[in-house]
Design a protein around this nucleic acid. Sequence first.
DNA 1: AAAAGTAATTGTAATTCCTACAATATGTAA
DNA 2: TTACATATTGTAGGAATTACAATTACTTTT
Lengths: 232, 232
Amino acid sequence: MINFEDYAKSAFTVDNIIFGFDDGNLKVLVIKRGEAPYEGQWALPGNFVYPNEDLDASANRVLQELTGLKDVYLEQVRTFGAVNRHPMGRVITVAYFSLIKITDYKLQGTAPLSKKTEWVSIKDATNLAFDHDEILTACFNRLKRRVRMRPVGFELLPRKFTLTELQHLYEAILEPSKEIDKRNFRKKILSMKILVDLGETQEGVAHRPAKLYKFDKKKYKKFVEEGYIFEI
Amino acid sequence: MINFEDYAKSAFTVDNIIFGFDDGNLKVLVIKRGEAPYEGQWALPGNFVYPNEDLDASANRVLQELTGLKDVYLEQVRTFGAVNRHPMGRVITVAYFSLIKITDYKLQGTAPLSKKTEWVSIKDATNLAFDHDEILTACFNRLKRRVRMRPVGFELLPRKFTLTELQHLYEAILEPSKEIDKRNFRKKILSMKILVDLGETQEGVAHRPAKLYKFDKKKYKKFVEEGYIFEI
DNA sequence: AAAAGTAATTGTAATTCCTACAATATGTAA
DNA sequence: TTACATATTGTAGGAATTACAATTACTTTT
């Protein structure tokens, strides 16, 4: 139970919007609130920033408490501070988003918290508590832009993936735009030379198995130093 | 004199980095601090967020108190909250930047505050108080990106401008990249059809006078609704 | 064993966009 | 009248983007 007196007249929090990709859909992790305000409603994961905690550290903590994961992609998006955004006082929140490999999360299994969590498709994540609809929209918009300018999409895929999976990821995120041409997408991605053909293929599929690739982070970094600019 | 007790254990502020364009150079407005900490050092303009004030409103207030201007381009950039960024306690700051027509500021003349302010070229704005060097860098980087994806450069120019002035503006902001080809720049900008030829020319110059243009905001908005994406 | 089903893989031509590059025009100052 | 300073304009070559469909490799069904 949070005692608001402890946080003085005003408080600040971080919210960490956790994105995952599963079953061809972009998903976000939501939490059912166990206490007022908005008890019983779904909300985005967040927490107060501790007095001796940097902002990024706080966002990472929220992630780790929920998923057990650390060292994942994390990006600050925007700070929300409308005077009445929190019914119990002035609370300013710094919004972050994380990109995780949803399979890793599944392996962790039980979340170490008693909170009820759920992955929901981005389009179904509405009517959230507080101003979380607005926060989610801002984070999703940022992700759409980010994914086109930096190779962060790989953070959402398993280490080994097929080109079709990668394309589906882009389609799920950029959705409203028209669908992507298979040949042109492959041409473009492969021409970047930041994927490694692992020489392996899919197993257990009822059709021609696809080749598996992985993202070559070191090579990408080297290219960046040489002035390369990722864009899709 | 600020009494830190009033802001409890932690406080939040906004910093508003005010950019102007003058004499072919991108400039920022800095303030000489009149009190501890960092007394006598240059700093970025900022202030505490009042209890009943939204964040954007707070940033606008900082701008207006300094320049008398309102209704100018304002954008939130990032929030800085390192535990020890402020020597007198935990202070989290939300960084914004504003783009103003420096000529308008000059007309205002005397700043209504007793603070000593100065326009300095972006490259000379170093050794600022607090973590303001880092904040300025973040805002400048954001501006570089923004100016290529949205037609915000016009906010820094007088209402009527020449194509050469516009090009110089882009060169000043994107500087480190190679200089822009005159013909290609004009072709590109004019092909966007978001500039209006005012049918007037420069006066008082010792050479062929250039045509004056203005940015057609309404037309741009209509194009955006039709799916147009500005890029330079 | 053959056929049907399913998704993976691959190339080319047309078009659009980007880049490099220099001569002429229009004003003021000497 | 000449010198000076900057404004204005076009074209050709190369690069990137787009549109578009047949063949391949594997599993499942008959």
